[in-house]
Amino acid sequence: MSALVVRGLTARLDGFALGPVDLEVPPGTALAVLGPSGAGKTTLLRAIAGFVPAYARELSVGGTPVAALPPEERRMGYVPQGLALFPHRTVEGNVAYPLEIRGAADTAARTRDLLDAWGLTRLARASVLSISGGEQQRTAMARALAAGPRLLLWDEPLAAVDALARRALIGSIRRVLQREGVSMLLVTHDAETAFAVADRFLVLDGGRALPPTTPARLVDRPPSRFAAELAGYDNVLAAEDLAGGPEGSLAAWLLARAGPGGIGVPSEAMRAAGTGGWSGRVVGRRERPGGREIRVAVDGLELRLFERGVTSAGNGGIGDALRFSLDEDALRPIGGAGEAGA
């Protein structure tokens, strides 16, 4: 039985229309809702949590319909953007809150276990305002899980945590979710977190939901240009930008291989070559971790080419001509056939 089933959910908030959205989160898995700012991610999460009036053909948690229930009876652990730790309570007081509210008999013992599981025992009496960003994240997670929800709703997790702490946290989040058998719906615009935590993706754009997909399918056949960018394609070219290129031009060649939404060209798929291939002009260059990125203009298109391991000043001064080859197998059409499924 799925942890969360949403069918035909629509919501309106301050003139913004969301949906219809269909999604399903199987038990013990995590679904990431992805999309640019203003796509409706937070509205979707708040509608599921019961804070935004919404209509849905089906909205059920663990098989129980919850659409008619107030937020406090939906049994979801909700972690909003910014975490919303209670500033008047200690770390321990925050974690114990859901248990106290429900009058749980084993509040003290369960709180101790949670503090221990999330490495917060030493901070139990500390004010939540005096601990680090990572510690606040762990406190919010422990609090959300305290009352034993079947589903965790998480808005922009790890937004305020530095990259190093983020990796450590992602590991412990996955471990605890698996141990407690909790499913998760997370909303993020951060690809790293999404790929590291989620089993499946749902891409939202302008309130419209694309069919859910897996990380592998997202990389293989991105359903939208935003998804292609998220999947790490440095060059995301819209079909309309490729149209009209003369025969034999790079634009025409790419258009022949593009999907309805355009084409994703990984920068690693392009290689500077002495002879043959395509010819363009260097318009920019900058160092990037692991190598150098060169921006090259070809037939009115601008592409980013990545040279791994290159650190010398090397070829490709601005204004120079540059020949490069393109690995056809690495190109990815955007949208169209095969976007459904998962």
């Binding site: 708040r46 804070f51 937020p71 909700y78 972690v79 909003p80 910014g82 209670f86 429900r102």
Partner: peptide, 15 residues
């Protein structure tokens, strides 16, 4: 008082 604090309390089981 941040509305998100109140929403979070509701979601954690508070009427």
């Amino acid at each position: 008082v941040d509305a998100r604090l109140i929403e979070t309390a509701r979601s954690l089981g508070a009427s």
